[in-house]
Design a binder for these strands. Structure first.
Lengths: 162, 162
DNA sequence: GCATAATGCATAGCCAAGCTATGTATATAA
DNA sequence: TTATATACATAGCTTGGCTATGCATTATGC
């Protein structure tokens, strides 16, 4: 019976997966808009995404930060210039390479990110506070799965590194 | 036992929900970037989001479209101007109100959206094709839940309409 | 019916996040 | 040493965001 189940499931995902992905990406973008509008944040998702990456990875090269954020290097240069100006990140000379910078989040940047997350939670909780336990479980697991799958370098083939 | 379970769950969600929402919004934004980068789409998420809304809702007023997309009206005016120029949407005189327009998606726009979704699926499937059946189930359910919750007008309190 | 207020959309102006192309300095390879 | 590659900055462009304002139409109040 387990063998039969395993044979059946790949077929299901092969049929459902493409449709799911379209819906998933669309609703993800809607959620991003909901977050932006409900927090009335003066900063953009790119800012929070960048700061989150620095918290997760620690100090990292500017180019690597761009890669992790899935944006071009000049875009990241611009984002960092803005964040540097408000002291949310700092540039550290990379002693191993005279061309490179290490970018690190500052305590001020960590606080800003923390504040944003608090504001976000407060704004969004009313949309989700009546979730049933199993629904909440789905969201928790889906978040975990997505975090794993969107992480840079996890593609099954080498295409993601191309 | 059911009563005990129900009493326990609200407490869990009250503690976990804020943290989950921060992670969820962050990963949603990452997914949007993954989608944009892997499809190499010349169009932005705002375009696909707008076209998707028109498919879902049918012809709708420009201002209502802005509201459904959670952007300001002038922003939507700009987006529609671009979509009108490439014949992905059409403007229809609103016979009930001389100030208003009805905006509808064209067959050409529907095809463009369909093509994008195909391209998206093709690009993203390698990231998700090895999902276990239960993982896939979590994503499917989470997508359904999010679609419900980000829909305009579903907030528990009236704040979303303010 | 007329005056006033409200509404729907367009325009204006600004900013930030995206991109590709190019430039400059440094590091690596031959 | 020279040629090539790499890391980041700059330049220029576009689009999606915003608020403020303008204009025409509609709704409301008297």
């Amino acid at each position: 019976m387990l063998t039969v189940d395993q044979k059946a499931e790949p077929g299901v995902s092969a049929e459902q997966l493409p449709l799911l992905l379209g819906d998933l990406v669309t609703v993800a973008n809607r959620l991003t808009r909901l977050a932006a509008q409900s927090t009335e944040s003066a900063e953009s998702p790119a800012v929070w995404r960048t700061l989150s990456t620095l918290v997760s990875l620690g100090p990292v090269r500017l180019g690597e930060l761009a890669r992790q954020s899935r944006v071009s290097q000049p875009t990241m240069t611009k984002i960092i210039r803005n964040l540097d100006q408000v002291d949310w990140v700092k540039r550290i000379v990379d002693v191993d390479d005279g061309r490179a910078w290490q970018i690190a989040i500052t305590p001020k940047g960590e606080k800003a990110l923390h504040d944003w997350r608090d504001t976000l939670a407060e704004a969004l909780v009313p949309h989700f506070s009546d979730l049933a336990a199993d629904e909440l479980e789905h969201l928790i697991e889906a978040t975990r799965i997505l975090q794993q799958r969107v992480a840079v370098g996890t593609l099954l083939s080498k295409r993601d590194d191309a």
